[in-house]
């Protein structure tokens, strides 16, 4: 499990209610309002996208919306920075392959 259950200084993390979303068609659970990237990390997902030219994998790097390594296709929209976009119930999240969704 990648979630911290209880922290020695911060106590129990304050989280939103549990919601369901899909990642490349697979159903996953996360907490409402947390960045999509955090929900993916909690589910063990490392690869967010593949670069266009060399098809190299990328994942979370800065976690504050600056590096664009974590962009994905969210609800059909390309280039969404998942580290700063809050998770919502029913979101459709897809690995981005260059400038399309994976498998598209």
């Amino acid at each position: 499990m990648n979630r911290i259950e209880e922290h020695p200084i911060l106590g129990e993390p304050q989280k939103g209610r549990e919601v369901t979303f899909t990642f490349d068609g697979k159903e996953m659970k996360g907490c409402e309002g947390e960045p999509i990237a955090m929900a993916l990390k909690a589910n063990g997902v490392m690869i967010h996208r593949y670069t266009k030219k060399e098809h190299k994998p990328r994942g979370i790097f800065c976690a504050i919306g600056r590096c664009t390594d974590c962009v994905m296709v969210v609800n059909g929209k390309l280039n969404v920075r998942t580290c700063i976009t809050p998770l919502e119930e029913g979101m459709v999240v897809q690995t981005q392959d260059g400038v399309t969704a994976k498998g598209a």
Binding site: R3, I4, H7, P13, K15, M38, F61, C62, A63
Partner: peptide, 17 residues
């Protein structure tokens, strides 16, 4: 491969290892 700031953001703001 992540930045130290990212590590802090994950664990201290979002409760994720």
């Amino acid at each position: 491969v992540i930045g130290a700031g990212a590590a802090q953001t994950m664990m201290n703001l979002h409760g994720i290892k």
